[in-house]
Design a protein around this nucleic acid. Structure first.
Ligand code: ZN
Ligand code: ZN
Length: 807
DNA sequence: AGCACGCCGACT
DNA sequence: GTCGGCGTGCTC
């Protein structure tokens, strides 16, 4: 019986816009809904797709059938389809890519060609007459089939003809095989005692034991049963056969192991907090609005978020809380878990594919009403969203910097507008963009001006690094003034935190003979020496070079380890304070699961006196006994060729400074810099956010940068440097031809600040204008013309709308 | 993306 | 003459 659900519009997870129309077979109808993940035939392949609508084909055409539906429930809500469409338009991306980016990873099922050995093939290898090349291929295939693509792309490549030859001889076969998705529901077998009388015989003592166990404990998973009652391993089978025990398959949730969390009691709010909660809460039932919460560090923003989430739930709505990835790894979610218990789901990068899938399904099945997570949690499949919180809204990690380069903070407003929800952006140092939106009335501003503990902001002392530049070695950075302040602090039995934006030991290794920097073979950057692994490493591509290396220019063997990273500072600090415990906190010491928690615990329990760390120490940890924060060099980010350099530096300094004096004792900050008179540094020192925003805003206006214009960055990359440049010039020409007389500026093409990464040369073209739609039309048209051009088949072009870093 | 079709250079 | 290189176009 044809009805509305007879035909499904399916978007396949390929870089295609789609959708494609498929027939929904009767037996799949109950499982087919908007958001369902389906397996469909596509060309001569089988691929994964998602139902985005139900509608018959627009014209008479051959329509294929959906092969299967893949999950217990749809993975996104119908309300999210317009969001995906918006993203596809705004970021100039195919719908298939949008959906693939939005949903958890590891879900794609695709078929591929695999080559397998036949029995006669196995025998052929023993034949001495068998040519060497054929023998090699047979060896590679061994006992397990190998994907065709893997053979063709291997080094050295296996010629397609060789495979054809063996296929003709009947030694190998090429077949299509479905790859299994990495993430899927986990099932387990559950045993349950059947009702009814027992037979007179066949029920041995051990079998009776099993039956009793199940009657007492109720249905039990087989794995549990085997553990708690080992004899079940042998007794279960016969009892099932006798019909006395039933087995069934049940879906189980994998949950990441974590410490038990004690429910908390909400503290009472300060007047200011109460004021903010009432203002925002009043909006929860009146449709879309975005609030910008400016709250100094320590003013209790998190408590405000939690109250508002509670209010949203009370109004029968759901809520999403976005936090920076780093904060999540450091367990910011614990406070939310303590408050919301099993009503909350957590999404972050530390989860395995399976765990993330289970959290996702839990959200989709409405078994939770709050989601906390990093960037991608903006795509949580919640219905009836009432509130979206974006904590530390200025944080760069909300911008995805690969593939589809979306900004979750911006999408929060888009999704909220579509679903009639309220957005709360929170930060001590809002982005210039958001601050401006508040100024113009696009956002409503709410304020927390007082710290909860009533403590004043820490005092910041500036140390001019120029004065110490002739001191030996690391003392140019561990200046006498800093060491003195550290000594005083440690003598009071308080803790010190040293912030440095570079990991590793030495970030600028150079040849001692000729002065040539030691660079990566694949990228145009210096290698970083890591003492921990005793080797050089490229931070772009991971390329590894043993410590015993030589200069590529003069073959010299002595490498000078210039430039200071966290490892070098850690070592020097241990040297100066031999009786103090020093912990290092950076990507290298926290890579292993749980290692960060261990360090944090050490700091909390005061087994650690001095922490040396990168960015990640700046977020979310509240250590009352850290009373001195040392910023080793405040200018590192200030000199980057990026219009946001000042903004980022100010935000970072304010945040790092906020780590000092979180407890009862007053905090102090030593800020070292080569440019003590720089405006940005001065504002950070004076805690004068207003001055900084005023000045920075007028700078942006004068130079026509965001928020006064929109920027789109077109990135061109290719293995061949000449072709990359030619492609960039060609594309630039095509853009110029399509440039309207006014309103859009084209800058470039120019080499990217990082000229070469992973053996690909990089160029970029920057577009600046007031109308993003006009710029996008230009780009789409120029891109279409560029693709017709020919000769640029391997060149990759990617478009970054509203780039965060111009790198 | 991946797979087929099709059009040109170099090897039997 | 064929084989196989890759540029072009399509996938419900
Ligand atoms: Zn040299
Ligand atoms: Zn590299």
């Amino acid at each position: 019986m044809p009805d509305a659900t007879c035909y499904a519009q399916v978007t396949v997870t390929l870089p295609l816009s789609g959708p494609y129309t498929y027939l929904v077979p009767d037996h799949l109808r109950p499982h087919a809904a908007v958001g369902s993940r389906v397996l469909v035939p596509f060309g001569r392949r089988t691929v994964t797709g998602y139902i985005t609508a139900f509608a018959p084909p627009s014209k008479k055409m051959r329509v294929k059938k959906i092969i299967d539906t893949l999950d217990p429930c749809p993975l996104f809500t119908p309300g999210m389809v317009p969001l995906f469409q918006w993203i596809a338009d705004y970021y100039i991306a195919p719908m298939g890519d949008v959906i693939k980016t939005a949903l958890p990873g590891g879900l794609n099922v695709v078929d591929r060609q695999v080559v397998s050995l036949t029995t006669s093939g196995t025998r052929a290898a023993d034949d001495p007459a068998c040519p060497e090349a054929e023998k090699e291929l047979i060896d590679i295939l061994g006992s397990t089939p190998v994907p065709l693509k893997q053979l063709l792309d291997s080094e050295p490549p296996i010629p397609r003809s060789l495979i054809k030859v063996l296929e003709n001889k009947g030694w190998v076969t090429v077949t299509r095989e479905l790859s299994t998705a990495r993430a899927r529901a986990k099932m387990e077998t559950v045993a349950e005692a059947a009702a009814g009388p027992l037979p007179k015989k066949g029920v041995t003592e051990k079998r009776q034991l099993l039956l009793d166990f199940l009657r007492v404990h109720g249905p039990t998973a087989r794995a549990d049963l085997n553990r708690k009652l080992p004899s079940a391993k042998s007794t279960l089978g016969p009892m099932v056969e006798m019909g006395l025990i039933h087995l069934s398959e049940d879906r189980v949730e994998r949950s990441p192991l974590g410490e038990e969390i004690v429910p908390d009691t909400p503290p009472s709010l300060t007047d200011e907090q109460q004021q903010v909660v009432s203002t925002v809460s009043a909006q929860l039932t009146s449709g879309y609005a975005t609030f910008l919460l400016k709250g100094v560090t320590g003013s209790g923003k998190t408590e405000v978020y939690m109250r508002l989430v509670e209010d949203a739930l009370a109004a029968g709505k759901t809520a999403v809380v976005l936090v920076p990835e780093i904060a999540l790894i450091a367990q910011t979610d614990r406070r939310f878990k303590a408050r919301f218990g099993d009503r909350i789901a957590v999404l972050h990068s530390g989860l395995s594919d399976g765990e993330r899938y289970d959290q996702w399904v839990k959200i989709a099945e409405k078994r939770v009403s709050v989601v906390i997570g990093a960037r991608s949690a903006i795509f949580a499949p919640l219905t009836d969203i009432g509130l979206i919180v974006v904590d530390e809204e200025h944080d760069g990690s909300y911008k995805q910097e690969s593939g589809l380069r979306y900004n979750a903070r911006d999408l929060a407003a888009v999704r909220a507008r579509m679903e009639g929800a309220v957005v709360l952006l929170g930060s001590a140092t809002p982005s210039i963009q958001s601050a401006w939106n508040a100024r113009t009335g696009k956002f409503k501003e709410v304020l927390l001006t007082k710290r909860v503990n009533q403590k004043p902001m820490p005092e910041i002392e500036v140390v001019d690094l120029k004065k110490y530049k002739d001191l030996p070695g690391i003392h140019t950075f561990l200046t006498p003034r800093l060491v003195e302040a550290m000594t005083q602090t440690l003598d009071r039995d308080e803790q010190v935190l040293l912030f440095l934006n570079r990991r590793g030991f030495s970030g600028a290794p150079i040849c001692a003979h000729c002065g040539e920097p030691l660079k990566c073979r694949h990228c145009d950057v210096s290698m970083t020496f890591h003492k921990g692994v005793n080797a050089f490493r490229c931070h772009i591509c991971g390329y590894f070079e043993p410590a015993k290396t030589h200069c590529r220019i003069c073959n010299g063997h002595k490498i000078k380890l210039l430039g200071s990273g966290t490892e070098k500072v850690e070592e020097a600090v241990k040297d100066i304070f031999p009786h103090k415990n020093v912990a290092r906190m950076d990507q290298d010491t926290t890579a292993r699961r749980g290692s960060l928690l261990k360090i944090l615990k050490g700091v909390r329990e005061k087994q650690v006196d001095i922490v040396v760390g990168t960015q990640m120490i700046a977020k979310g940890h509240d250590f009352p006994d850290i009373t001195l924060v040392g910023v080793i060099c405040a200018d590192t980010a200030l000199n980057l060729p990026d219009f946001r350099a000042g903004e980022r530096t100010f935000q970072l300094l304010a945040q790092v400074a906020g780590r000092a004096g979180r407890g009862d004792k007053p905090g102090r900050v030593i800020l070292q810099t080569y440019v003590p008179d720089h405006f940005t540094i001065g504002c950070a020192v004076d805690h004068d956010a207003d001055a900084f925003y005023t000045q920075e805003t007028s700078f942006r206006r004068a130079l026509a940068y965001p928020p006064f214009t929109r920027i789109i960055l077109v990135r061109i990359a290719d293995k061949n440097s000449g072709r990359c440049r030619t492609a960039a010039q060609k594309l630039s020409g095509l853009l110029w031809e399509r440039r309207p007389d006014q309103g859009i500026a084209i800058m470039g093409p120019a080499e990217a600040p990082l000229t070469r990464a992973m053996n690909r040369y990089r160029w970029q073209i920057l577009l600046k204008g007031e109308s993003p739609s006009a710029m996008k039309k230009m780009i789409t048209d120029a891109l279409a013309a560029f693709r017709k051009e020919g000769g640029f088949s391997g060149v990759s072009i990617s478009i970054d709308v509203d780039p965060y870093a111009l790198g």
